[in-house]
């Protein structure tokens, strides 16, 4: 009697054990979105190809009405509604990995037009661009300067200093460090705000009255 009881327990346990493993195998699924490039390939890509496009280039193309670029606005819909590059599509930065967005990128991936990402500034467009690049999209670039520069740009007399290139060193750091004592004192002297302290009123009269 005892022997039979032990056997049923064992078989129940074994069935459960196998069931758990099978359920585990079925329910484990691979992540929806996977990197196409390894980190090493990503670094190679960062070094080799030209990943950025100047706002001037985009503006010139937009002026002649070419369809050389498909511009993606990564800002919020509110900012997008206030002003954008004509013909651009609004995909906020936090939604670029949603299904519809990826479908959009897939649709445009095979075409000759370059997808240009832009945000308020280039730093904000850099993250989404890096993600899309690592997912394997090859014709995606980011716009230097971002909307901040694009909105202010004058096509007739473009900025000769290319000030939208934030990676260019603007100063000679070593020289600044060497000639530091001059550089700081030559500026205007430290201006301190006068602090106005209200004077305390001294009561001169005796306290009167009260109930």
């Amino acid at each position: 009697m005892r022997e039979i009881y032990k056997t049923t327990r064992l078989s129940v346990a074994s069935v459960l054990f196998v069931a758990v493993i099978i359920v585990g195998l079925i329910t484990t699924r691979r992540p929806d979105i996977e990197y196409a490039l390894t980190p090493q390939q990503t670094i190679e890509k960062l070094k080799n190809s030209n990943n950025e496009i100047s706002p001037l280039e985009v503006a010139k193309s937009m002026k002649v009405g070419g369809n050389q670029f498909v511009c993606i606005d990564l800002r919020s819909p509110y900012d997008f509604s206030k002003g954008n590059i004509s013909g651009s599509v609004n995909i906020p930065a936090n939604r670029i990995l949603e299904k519809e967005s990826l479908e959009f990128f897939d649709k445009n991936a095979g075409k000759t037009a370059t997808i240009v990402l832009y945000d308020e500034n280039q730093s904000l467009a850099n993250g989404p661009w890096m993600i899309l690049m690592q997912l394997g999209y090859t014709n995606v670039k980011m716009m230097q300067g971002g909307w901040d520069f694009y909105a202010k740009m004058n096509l007739e007399s473009p900025d000769q200093n290319l000030s939208w290139q934030v990676e260019t060193p603007k100063y000679n750091y070593a020289a600044i460090k060497a000639s530091s004592s001059q550089s700081v004192t030559s500026g205007t002297p430290a201006e301190k705000k006068e602090v106005v302290l209200p004077e305390k009123k001294v009561k001169t009269k005796k306290v009167e009255g009260g109930c």
């Binding site: 600044i176 460090k177 530091s180 550089s183 700081v184 004192t185 705000k193 006068e194 209200p198 009123k201």
Partner: peptide
């Protein structure tokens, strides 16, 4: 300015300059 002095070893002349007019608080 303090940080600048720390990182560059610069000497800073701090001149007192009046920027705001004194407000008279008359009693």
């Amino acid at each position: 300015l303090g940080a600048s002095q720390f990182f560059t070893g610069a000497t800073i002349e701090v001149k007192k300059s009046e920027t705001k007019e004194n407000v008279d608080l008359t009693k």
